[in-house]
Design a protein around this nucleic acid. Structure first.
Length: 411
RNA sequence: GGGCCGAUAGCUCAAUUGGUUAGAGCAGUUGCCUUUUAAGCAAUUGGUUCGGGGUUCGAUUCCCCGUCGGCCUACCA
């Protein structure tokens, strides 16, 4: 008989002569899935397996429903999610992955606390969904008789705390984006954001590299990760760094790409097999090339720097190139794992960037945030990392559904 | 939101071109066996073939609608 608990399986050997007739008769009524206690001396069988010789046993809880088949396990995706308890009982790999998720998150906390970061919690219900450009979920507070949005990022409240004098803050929290569901997207997902005063995106580079190496090496005791498609990611080697524009120019084989007219860019993009739309902005064409043709091929850890300023209104403009911002996008395994910026702390510049963006997209301007900046925000580096994605990467999962216990399904 | 594919016993899977009573392994039940690495042997129970409609002498099989799932795609600076 095999007994399984939270961390593993052990064998028990049950004989009528060591257990007694009455208890043995009870034992014979056991079903797979019953919860029992067994007491007795350990011995090693001739095949070398450590085994408990049952001298006493007790039924703790009865299982009334049959478990899935023991050898094939539970494969049906829908049941694995809707009845996650069965998945966790039957599929060791799944259970292991959630243990690792927990270890990764506590590892992040430990790492940041050692660097004097303060963990904080900020509101989920917000007036304006800021810090990103996703559609929010709406909800209503009855007593106040007013609408709220669920947050789509943690950014703006954490920056207010920088103004308040907390120099190193982080939050690990749920964000909600009213967008499609895919292998890499769940409507509610867990995000780490951190801000460090008197640092910048270069400082964040050192931090994220140290953090991820710590998670791989010290928390998970690995040196490399094999992705579901077989590619091996080496975390301990040198991490590459490349400028966004250089990558795009290299891909389109044209050093003057960014001087081309929008039409020329459009036709080249189509030549490369992309569905470029007429009404796109200039930078959107380039970004389509980056997103579709470059990012998926950045397997080894790569910092992509000097992104076009249109891509993020919350970062500082590069001093010697007004078309780019002081940011990086850390790409690993073809996924965007962590973006980081030198944070914009000039309230006038920030307003200008917001207004420019509000002209193009439908984005409300968070006046409270701008007013807060006017009190003086220290220069800072900030970083965000999708927890689900980093867990996917580090636990070699090929879908976000395997790292979220109860991901969203229809109905 | 769009496209393609799928749903058969508690679980993992079969079922010929549309043809009799939809099968197997595991689980369950009954009996035997007792150091087995998916424990063994024998017998046995178990089906609204996802739901609804249609075509047909006849539908798991073909068609339509719905539900749910998978993959791709779109939105996600």
């Amino acid at each position: 008989m095999k007994i399984q608990d939270q961390r593993g399986i052990i064998q028990s050997y049950v004989r009528i002569d060591s257990l007694g007739e009455e208890a043995y008769a009870e034992f014979k009524k056991l079903d797979a899935g019953d919860i029992i206690g067994v007491e007795g001396p350990l011995f090693v069988t001739k095949t070398g397996e450590v085994t408990v010789r049952a001298e006493r046993y007790e039924l703790v809880s009865k299982s009334l429903r049959p478990l899935p088949e023991k050898f094939q396990g539970l494969k049906d995706q829908e049941q694995r999610i809707r009845q996650r308890h069965l998945d966790l009982i039957m599929n060791l790999e799944s259970r292991e992955r959630f243990f690792n998720r927990s270890k990764i998150i506590s590892g992040i906390r430990r790492f940041l606390e050692e660097r004097d970061y303060l963990e904080v919690e900020t509101p989920v219900f917000q007036n304006i969904a800021g810090g990103a450009a996703a559609r929010p979920f709406l909800t209503k507070h009855n007593a106040l008789d007013r609408e709220f949005v669920l947050r789509i990022s943690l950014e703006l409240y954490l920056k207010r705390l920088l103004v308040g004098g907390f120099d190193r803050v982080f939050e690990i929290g749920r964000n909600f984006r009213n967008e499609g569901i895919s292998r890499r997207h769940n409507p509610e997902f867990t995000m780490l954001e951190l801000y460090q005063a008197y640092s910048d995106y270069r400082g964040m580079m050192e931090l994220i590299q140290s953090l991820i190496r710590y998670l791989v090496k010290d928390v998970l005791k690995k040196t490399e990760i094999t992705m579901p498609n077989g590619e091996v990611i080496d975390f301990l080697g040198e991490w590459k760094e490349a400028k966004y524009k250089d990558l795009v120019c290299e891909k389109v084989e044209d050093p003057n790409w960014f001087e081309l007219s929008k039409d020329a860019k459009l036709s080249k993009a189509r030549e490369l097999g992309l569905e470029a739309q007429e009404d796109w902005e200039d930078y959107e064409v380039s970004n389509e090339i980056f997103g579709k043709l470059i990012e998926p091929n950045l397997i080894q850890p790569t910092f992509v720097t000097h992104l076009p300023k249109e891509l993020c209104p919350l970062a500082k403009i590069t001093i010697d190139d007004s078309s780019t911002i002081d940011v990086f996008e850390l790409c690993i395994g073809g996924m965007e794992i962590a973006p980081a910026y030198s944070e914009q702390n000039d309230p006038d510049m920030q307003r200008e960037m917001f207004e420019k963006q509000a002209g193009e997209e439908t984005q409300n301007i968070d006046e409270d945030f701008l007013e807060t900046l006017e009190y003086g925000m220290p220069p800072a580096g900030g970083l965000g990392m999708g927890i689900d994605r980093i867990v996917m990467l580090l636990t070699e999962a090929d879908t976000i559904r395997d790292v979220i216990l109860y991901p969203q399904l229809r109905s």
